[in-house]
């Protein structure tokens, strides 16, 4: 292959899988319309961008990163101290030193509590036997994710090509199951009795699992969090 062919091939490849004028802006990912969802399902660029965004929003710790993330978050707070000996970059004096010590100490405590109670690292052990075939395959969730202004009436995700059915479960933060169900379509409409449990301020998680005709797991969404924002 000549260098020119390499450059040309690279340009063509990047043009083919790069963004187009029809691509969905990142700002729309939290509330995709039917048309936008249809575009995402046939656009490799948007599909990849949606995957990255979902990983950011899911904010789930991996097995080996909890301590590093805690250190970085603490370091971020530390660098905000205008007179701190530990400061690396003086440019990071956003708001002056007001109440820095209290905030930094508070943050340290909150981070410590958060990681010990809420954000505990998963144990490293053997994977469940029924997910060994395609552990990395993911279901891409459309809604609900994050803070919502109204209680969601349905759960939606992108279809998985190998799925015969989807199992869906909604949990409280402590892991208590409040509803579970199945669907052959990539969405499920929730019973009214479940929707009324989505009280403002109450954080919930949900997960969808795709199964093939034999019932084996072919993909998972990972845990998605949402809550209805309380009105003041």
């Amino acid at each position: 292959m000549s260098p020119q062919d390499g450059i040309r091939g690279r340009e063509l490849l990047q043009a083919a899988i790069g963004p187009t004028a029809e691509c969905v802006p990142i700002e729309r990912f939290a509330s995709l319309s039917a048309n936008e969802l249809a575009h995402v399902e046939r656009c490799a660029h948007c599909e990849a961008e949606l995957s990255l965004w979902q990983q950011f929003e899911a904010n789930e710790p991996s097995a080996d990163e909890g301590a590093a993330v805690q250190w970085i978050a603490t370091e971020l707070a530390r660098r905000r101290a205008p007179n701190s000996a530990a400061i690396r970059a003086p440019r990071f004096n956003w708001f002056g030193g007001r109440a820095f010590a209290a905030l930094a100490a508070g943050l340290l405590v909150m981070v410590a509590i958060g990681y010990s109670v809420i954000d505990r690292e998963p144990s490293i052990g053997a994977l469940p036997g029924d997910v060994s075939t395609y552990r990395g395959s993911a279901i891409h969730v459309a809604e609900p994710v994050g803070d919502l202004t109204a209680a969601p009436e349905r759960l939606r995700w992108l279809p998985h090509s190998a799925a015969a059915r989807y199992d869906v479960v909604i949990h409280e933060i402590d892991g208590t199951t409040i509803w579970s169900g199945s669907s052959t379509a990539p969405e499920v409409t929730l019973p009214r009795s479940v929707i009324t449990q989505f009280a403002p301020g109450r954080s919930l998680t949900w997960e969808v699992t795709a199964r093939d005709p034999s019932g084996a797991i072919v993909a998972r969404s990972g845990t998605q969090r949402f809550r209805v924002v309380p009105r003041s």
Binding site: A44, E47, S51
Partner: peptide, 18 residues
Amino acid sequence: LFATLDRTERTVFTLHYG
């Protein structure tokens, strides 16, 4: 890409080459 690859393969391909 859509006819040949599954979603994860396509996403990895797009992020790596795109």
